[in-house]
Design a protein around this nucleic acid. Structure first.
Length: 491
RNA sequence: CGGGGUGUAGCGUAGCCCGGUAUCGCGUCUGGUUUGGGACCAGAAGAUCGUCAGUUCGAAUCUGGCCACCCCGACCA
């Protein structure tokens, strides 16, 4: 770890990059704005995708795959959608290279210009709704509940590992329904699925809410989101679920025949989460010794580190370690026995702490004599010696405890970092002081929202779904407001 | 695209003001001693100093062009 750089220091962003690199999760690619996700980082993504995919299937969705390329004309069909993405598109204009006539190397063959340019998908609404037009004819074809795991490209000006890269991995659900009510319900259901995942797997509390008009997804009628808080007090949008109304059905002319024989436009939703969640996981839980992974997403639950002087000693320890590993694996845990003789135990301890492995078991000569092991937990750094025959019973309990503890710690932090303010003075004071979430009254206008953003860099993260109705005055304009909304500076 | 900055070994850097073929740390390799919290000692390998041109007997250092990257803004999961 950097000497003076800590989870709360001003150089938080450097601290974050340090953790990503030292835990061996990812690195910047030589390709502009792109990221190489290394095996350990990818294994965390796999844990996430497995859990999410199961949740999607459990709510009736199926997976499919649609093309990477979006014809320019598709994108243009929904006016606000193009407008929203136009500034960050990668565009394919040619389909062939050739040797330059002057021998200067390989060039784009000017004769191989595409009739119509292809956009590398920034999101797939348009390609998918183009298919839906062909697939949906009758009420019997609805609802259509499809998810796709893929990569998308958004040509961002400035990028940051996991949080914002030109290309990223994600999941995008696209559904079509016969009624508005059903589509709204789907939108809300998937928001709940995301909140459930982030809270129960990532151990990160979130606030569910609705985006303001200016923050909503281009092409959506309503955008719902979950907002989490990071250790530096900034907010991070962890997932979004959009109610599309009939916007894309109109744009792609997707109509169905109702039971009554009438022709109607279908109602849509879309929802997604990305590899950004890995960034959230790091920024929410890591400490100055590295990553802290919640057990439910840890690629390795338990690492066993032998402490030995001779090969003979290692053999004796291996026997015990392997039998422990077998027991734990039978219970469904992922166990690594690190018997390398090229690194010392102290080095291994530090390395697995960097990687956030929740539980470490050390076995040395002393333990062989007394029939014990040393168990250390990553979240609190506590160590205790237990009998070897207790391991199979103690570890599952300990992992559950760690999962719960990490969540509680994050929840406590979130609560401490949430402040209600009633004046713009306090608003600015809190923002520049402790930061975090601010609950304040807002008059509901885009002008006020923009003015606050201009003056403070804080944005309306969401209008919380559980906001209590209370009469108040907008902190900026003094006009009446019926509820508090959530402000913060955000990633 | 505006404002600022930086390019020196696999990584991080010193040297640049005031020209004389490059410093230190990490890592790597070899040998030995070590091994219950990131080992130590000794040795070795590894850099046409981003790039092109200019000034000069001589350029990492001075001058100019180009390229790349980073930071701050605008944009964003």
């Amino acid at each position: 770890m950097g000497k003076e750089i800590t989870a709360r220091s001003e150089d938080y962003s450097q601290w974050y990059i340090d953790i990503v690199k030292k835990a061996d999760l990812a690195e910047n690619s030589d390709v502009r704005g792109c990221m190489v996700i290394k095996p350990y980082g990818y294994s965390i993504w796999e844990k996430m995708t497995q859990a999410l995919d199961k949740m999607f299937k459990d709510t009736g969705h199926v997976n499919a795959y649609f093309p990477l390329f979006v014809p320019k004309s598709f994108l243009a069909k929904e006016a606000s959608h193009v407008e929203g993405f136009a500034k960050e598109c990668a565009i394919v204009t040619h389909y062939r290279l050739k040797n330059a006539e002057d021998g200067s190397g390989i060039i784009v063959d000017p004769e191989a210009k595409l009739e119509e340019e292809l956009i590398v998908r920034p999101t797939s609404e348009t390609v998918i709704w183009n298919s839906y037009k062909k697939w949906i004819k009758s009420y019997r074809d609805l609802p259509l509940l499809i998810n796709q795991w893929c990569n998308v490209v958004r040509w961002e000006m400035r990028t940051r590992l996991f949080l914002r890269t030109s290309e990223f991995l994600w999941q995008e659900g696209h559904t079509a329904h016969a009624t508005s009510a059903e589509a709204v319900q789907e939108t809300r259901q998937m928001l709940d699925v995301y909140a459930d995942f982030v809270e129960n797997f990532m151990a990160l509390p979130v606030i569910k809410g609705k985006k303001s008009e200016s923050e909503k997804f281009p092409g959506a009628v309503d955008t719902y989101c979950i907002e989490a808080i990071m250790q530096d007090g900034k907010a991070l949008q962890a997932g979004t679920s959009h109610y599309l109304g009939q916007n894309f059905a109109k744009a792609f002319d997707v109509q169905f025949t109702t039971k009554e024989g009438k022709l109607e436009l279908v109602w849509g939703t879309s929802w997604g989460v990305s590899t950004r969640l890995i960034g959230a996981l790091i920024m929410a839980h890591s400490d100055d010794d590295g990553l802290v992974l919640p057990p439910k997403l840890a690629p390795i639950h338990v690492v066993i580190v032998p402490i030995f002087k001779s090969e003979e000693e290692l053999n004796k320890i291996s026997e015990k370690a392997n039998s422990l590993a077998v027991q734990l694996r039978q219970q469904g845990y992922s166990v690594k026995f690190d018997n390398r003789d090229t690194q010392k135990p102290g080095f291994k301890f530090a390395e697995y702490e960097l990687k956030g492995v929740p539980v470490r078991i050390a076995i040395g000569p002393r333990d062989l004599e007394s029939g014990t092991v040393e168990v250390a937990r990553r979240d609190t750094k506590e160590k205790k010696v237990i009998r070897m025959d207790e391991v199979a019973a103690v570890i599952p309990q300990l992992l559950d405890e760690i999962q719960a503890n990490i969540y509680q710690k994050a929840l406590k932090f979130r609560n401490e970092q949430t402040t209600s303010v009633d004046s713009f003075e306090d608003f600015k004071k809190v923002l520049d002081g402790k930061g975090g979430f601010i609950l304040a009254h807002w008059d509901g206008t885009a002008e006020t929202e923009a003015a606050i953003k201009e003056e403070t860099k804080a944005t309306i993260r969401c209008i919380p779904l559980d906001a209590v109705e209370e009469n108040g005055k907008c902190v900026y304009s003094g006009k009446p407001s019926g509820r508090r909304v959530l402000f913060a500076r955000a990633y």
